[in-house]
């Protein structure tokens, strides 16, 4: 499988990364090299293998429905690049 420039641009768009031309070229080459290496996985027959998503098998880890401590305004917004009147502010949201 080969990863094209277009693939890299598509992935960059999904990941919200603005890439420069040299970066696009570099990542195209490197992703091809790394995923080319990863192609060795195809050699393994895994049809009847159950995937492992968690290293330690746990289930039903839950908490009670009890109200805990929330952050106050100051703490919640302390790290905000643009916080005003208790809101996090963002520039215009375009629909596309």
């Amino acid at each position: 499988m080969t990863i094209s420039r277009e693939d890299v641009e598509y992935v960059a768009a999904l990941a919200r990364l603005e890439l420069t031309e040299p970066e696009i070229n570099e990542y195209t080459e490197q992703l091809n090299s790394i995923l080319g290496y990863a192609a060795m996985l195809e050699r393994l027959d895994t049809d009847n293998v159950v995937p492992t998503a968690h290293a330690v098998p746990l289930h039903n880890v839950m908490r009670g429905d009890q109200v805990g401590i929330s952050l106050n305004h100051e703490k919640a917004l302390k790290n905000a690049p643009d916080g005003e009147e208790g809101f996090f502010r963002v520039p215009r949201i375009s629909l596309t």
Binding site: E84, E85, F88, V90, P91, R92, I93
Partner: peptide
């Protein structure tokens, strides 16, 4: 949403 120059978020 489309005519706003900025928006505020409340989580």
């Amino acid at each position: 949403i489309s005519t706003s120059n900025e928006s505020s978020v409340d989580y």
